[in-house]
């Protein structure tokens, strides 16, 4: 369960002054639900997800993940989330197994727990054939699967995915989409950011359209469509942020 209330984060920039990267954002995501933060580059998606994953500290507002507070219980929060982004890298001189063992140890898994969890993940993500290959020898899709395995090695109840398909081809993207669908089926709480409308449409139970740090609109896909008398999410997006949709 993720609860975000009036979350704000400001950055100061020498040229542009104070930037409100996240401005009074509130939303909720329940177990078994996929919440999609939809917005263009620079809208505040990544900053929001970093605030939730405790990498950044909020300036105001309250965030709780599985009833743990991101500021005062950041270590517990980190223990309960799996984080993955599109530009997540891997240690190229290590094999998938070595990377997974490293993160399992950091998440406090005992050796037998790691072995058991690894067996489950290898089967689920079909990574067994290249698990012992150094990751710089793997294809992009294979690397992405190892990254997914890394993010769920401790079997977290909450997944925070920052544009996880960015820069991937359709086959590699498919592995992510399938993974998200399966995780939802297993009752995970999934927060997902994207700027790809179709992905949001297909995967998300609820969507928040974010622009210039603010959530402009949120609800289920059908609720949003009903408000705008159009099925085209792209048109809805432009209207929500106060812009004219493209002519073609």
């Amino acid at each position: 369960m993720i609860t975000v209330e009036n979350l704000s984060k400001y950055f100061s920039d020498k040229k542009r002054g104070v930037i409100k990267a996240v401005d009074d954002v509130s939303f909720q995501c329940k177990p078994g639900e996929v919440y999609g933060l939809l917005g263009p580059n620079g809208a505040g998606k990544t900053t929001t997800l970093r605030l939730l994953s405790t990498v950044l500290r909020p300036d105001s507002g309250k965030v709780s993940i599985c009833d743990y507070d991101v500021i005062n219980q950041s270590s517990e929060v980190r223990q309960h989330i799996g984080f993955l982004s599109g530009d997540t890298g891997l240690y190229r001189r290590l094999s998938g197994r070595e990377i997974l063992r490293y993160f399992a140890a950091l998440y406090g898994l005992k050796n037998h727990q790691f072995k058991q969890r690894l067996d489950e993940i290898v089967e689920l993500l079909e990574i067994g054939s290249y698990l012992d290959t150094k990751t710089d020898k793997l294809s992009t899709g294979q690397k992405q699967r190892i990254s997914i395995a890394r993010s769920v090695i401790h079997n977290p109840p909450v997944l925070i995915l920052d544009e996880p398909t960015a820069g991937l081809d359709i086959i590699a993207s498919k592995s992510i989409i399938d993974f998200i669908s399966r995780a939802r089926g297993n009752g995970k709480t999934i927060l997902f950011s994207t700027h790809v409308m179709r992905e949001a449409e297909r995967l998300c139970d609820r969507i928040g359209i974010i622009h210039e740090g603010k959530i402009k609109l949120q609800g289920t896909v059908s609720e949003i469509r009903a408000q705008f008398t159009t099925d085209d999410l792209e048109h809805i997006f432009f209207k929500a942020v106060g812009m004219e949709p493209p002519a073609i």
């Binding site: 970093r50 890298g89 240690y91 190229r92």
Partner: peptide, 14 residues
């Protein structure tokens, strides 16, 4: 540079 720092920062190690 390799994009592994963020994953390290979200694990429970201080």
């Amino acid at each position: 540079e390799r994009g592994t720092m963020e994953t390290l920062l979200v694990c429970p190690a201080s």
